[in-house]
């Protein structure tokens, strides 16, 4: 089981890690460390927290590697662990750790907004994401932050594709409602 370039797939590497293969583990770390950090930093909003989270997540994944099903994709399985841990960390940490919405994003669609309103909008979206039911948060982040398809998320979570799409739809609707007052203001 290798990629077209002859490199072993993530799944093959994970199987080797299940047997305690150090080299395979190092390869997996090299492949996913940057992306994992990038996602963790977005979710936690703090570089040091993100580094710690990536380190903890790799260890957590290794501790539960025996539960990884080699007939499935490694990537959704691993990022689900990361997303869960980030969301849990956000719940327990202080408001210091916040989802960072780039300034430019708010400016792009709400240019007339003054700084206070922009800041208020960011707060609203952050709060709305954190108020989503746990499963919806997880699915929303994996889909709309991390770019996983609904079948990939369904596989990782052991639920049907339809259920994933339903939760995603509910999450997006809730977030859209959170944006509603700002959209109306700019009409």
């Amino acid at each position: 089981m290798t990629s077209p370039e002859g490199e072993p797939t993530d799944t093959r590497l994970a199987q080797a890690v299940q047997r305690g293969d150090v080299v395979a583990y190092e390869l997996l770390v090299r492949r996913h460390m940057n992306r994992a950090f990038s996602l963790a930093q977005r979710l936690l909003g703090h570089r040091q927290d993100a580094e710690d989270m990536v380190q903890e997540t790799f260890l957590a994944a290794l501790e539960k590697i025996s539960t990884f099903d080699p007939t499935r994709e490694f990537s959704p399985w691993f990022y689900r662990i990361l997303v869960n841990r980030c969301l849990n960390a956000r719940k327990t940490r202080t408001r210091r750790a916040t989802v960072q919405i780039p300034e430019g994003v708010a400016t792009d669609f709400a240019s007339p907004l003054i700084d206070t309103e922009r800041s208020e909008l960011r707060e609203h979206i952050q709060d709305a994401i954190m108020r989503l039911p746990e499963r919806q948060q997880e699915i929303f982040v994996m889909s709309d932050f991390n770019g996983f398809s609904s079948p990939e998320i369904a596989e990782a979570m052991g639920i049907s594709d339809g259920t994933v799409r339903w939760h995603l739809h509910q999450a997006r609707r809730t977030l859209r409602e959170a944006l509603e007052p700002y959209a109306r203001r700019n009409i």
Binding site: E26, R42, R47, E51, F58, L62
Partner: peptide, 27 residues
């Protein structure tokens, strides 16, 4: 909102990747 959010690359210039990888492998 989400597209802008997703495409925004977090600033990782300060990340010491070697140190992070070493720490992960040590664990």
């Amino acid at each position: 909102v989400m597209t802008g959010w997703r495409e925004e690359t977090p600033t990782d210039a300060d990340v010491d990747w070697d140190r992070l990888r070493t720490a992960i492998l040590r664990d």
